[in-house]
Design a protein around this nucleic acid. Structure first.
Lengths: 195, 195
DNA sequence: CGACACATGTAACACGTTACATGATTTG
DNA sequence: CAAATCATGTAACGTGTTACATGTGTCG
């Protein structure tokens, strides 16, 4: 639900054509999450389908302009006025992976965590470098904020994985391992004995 | 790509039937990200379509068991051995929202941030409470790790929003505001003057 | 001219998600 | 018996994402 709203919010400033929207989106988010060109048009189609946008006239250059509707404006206002589901409420693949690594017998949880930790550290370092390199440039406040958000997320991931590694090392997974058997449905009788 | 792999990893322990997989998934992830029952079956269908799983026999109770294939086992091994794309590389809706709020004239960025900040704080507090309540319980290591991961993500979000509020307050969005005009395509002539 | 960027589109697919239908079994 | 739970499924939809086709204008 992010791209939809982002494009809509930009269109709230005035009519734009496809590629223009792409540029705007990239510039404002610091090109952090690259947006495929085609996606613009599919998203615009869907916005039009939902009556939030309508196609306007064509340019002298042939650019096809899209214009926001009243409904679209309302949607933008609502977007800006209410909480959105952020990363902290999203399904976390790394956490899922680690949780399963810890609970599944036969998986070296420590090794799994190490791999993810190394990758997360790389990622954090990349972002930090990017931040330093673009320090003197003309990067706007928005792009700068996005960059710090990504760094914060990466750092949090590193810190958590670090703590997880320690806990797995000390607490072990002795009581953590869960065989599928444990969950035998109530109406029971020993069911499947994996392997 | 998370649910697929999670179910596959559980199936790597031995055959399971649908609802059993649901229980396993919920238990191992501390039921943090609730999984609709139907999703299990759609996912299993797709796993079967891809040859990573095959249906096994039926139980005396009529339970339909699924069994992992060699290809599935390979996929699980690969999943555990390589970095996965975590939250830190995902599109961040909150950051996008704030970035747009800061760059779009006519939007009260400070107010937008406040709303998100309040929601994030609530979320963090909820998780902290959940953590305290389940302190003495028999929560396994995995579920505990997942909970801390969620708290870490929520805290990071709060901290970032806090910093963003400050920066928006001090740096203002004077130089940050970007009219759509700014981006006039190179081959140019003043194009659309929004509003 | 040829390479490249601009610009618009389309077709297909993946995954996640929900709502609904259906039956059996347990339990109060 | 009635309600709740267990269990299996299906149909439909939404967004994100990619790969591809196509044309035009610019620039060396």
């Amino acid at each position: 639900m992010s791209i939809r709203h982002a494009l809509l919010a930009i269109l709230d400033q005035g009519p734009c054509y496809g590629n223009q929207l792409r540029s705007e989106y990239n510039r404002r988010t610091g090109a952090a999450w690259p947006l495929n060109v085609g996606q613009i048009y599919t998203t615009l189609d869907r916005l039009e389908r939902d009556g939030l946008v309508r196609t306007s006239d064509r340019d002298a250059q042939g650019h096809l302009f899209y214009e926001i509707s009243d409904g679209g404006r309302a949607e933008v206002a609502e977007w800006f006025a209410n909480p959105v589901a952020g990363l902290s409420s999203a399904r976390d693949d790394v956490a899922t992976l680690v949780a399963l690594a810890v609970t599944l017998p036969g998986v070296d949880a420590a090794a799994v965590i190490d791999v993810q930790l190394a990758a997360a550290r790389d990622r954090a370092a990349d972002l930090r470098r990017e931040s330093i390199e673009s320090a003197g440039s003309d990067m706007g406040l928005a792009a700068s904020l996005v960059l710090t958000a990504r760094m914060a997320a990466a750092d949090a991931e590193v810190a958590w994985l670090d703590a997880a590694a320690t806990r797995v090392g000390t607490e072990g997974n002795t009581s953590g391992e869960l065989t599928v058997d444990t969950v035998a449905p109530r109406r029971g009788r020993p069911r499947n004995t994996p392997q």
